[in-house]
């Protein structure tokens, strides 16, 4: 005869297993989401030609995403999460720097060597 307590043990065990499974899935889901966000940011950086205009940040972000994915594959969710977050930040910097580099490039191309970069020559006899 099983006592009431005896009947409770298998139920508790099943509950704990279920909870553990749910928790793992939740952590895994969080890591995947972080990687997706970092990848999306990196694609944005790519569109801004970061691979060409901000290669340092672009390469680094790409490496961190790869590392994050690798850790996720080993179910090392905490590390995966951390590398994904770093990648997101670096990819955002890559995008920003690429845009800035693009602006400066166009500025240079629009003002070739020897011309007046600020148009001072157009002001006659007046203070700038």
């Amino acid at each position: 005869m099983l006592t009431a307590f005896g009947r409770l043990i298998p139920m508790l065990a099943v509950g704990l297993i279920g909870l553990a499974a749910c928790g793992g899935t939740a952590v895994s889901f969080m890591s995947s989401t972080a990687i997706e966000r970092a990848e999306a940011e990196l694609r944005g950086a790519e569109r801004a030609k970061a691979d060409e205009l901000a290669p340092y940040e672009y390469t680094k972000a790409d490496l961190y995403i790869r590392m994050s994915k690798e850790r996720l594959g080993f179910a090392d969710y905490q590390a995966a999460q951390r590398f994904a977050e770093d990648a997101l930040e670096i990819a955002a910097t890559a995008r920003k720097n690429a845009a800035e580099a693009k602006r400066l490039k166009s500025l240079r191309e629009g003002n070739p060597e020897g011309t007046d970069p600020k148009g001072w020559g157009s002001i006659k006899g007046e203070s700038p």
Partner: peptide, 21 residues
């Protein structure tokens, strides 16, 4: 390094971080 060898610099820094981890 950022100007002349950006990719090598990125790898050097990232791999050092990964090694620590």
């Amino acid at each position: 390094m950022v100007n002349c060898t950006p990719r090598e610099l990125a790898r050097a820094e990232a791999f050092a971080d990964f090694a620590r981890h």
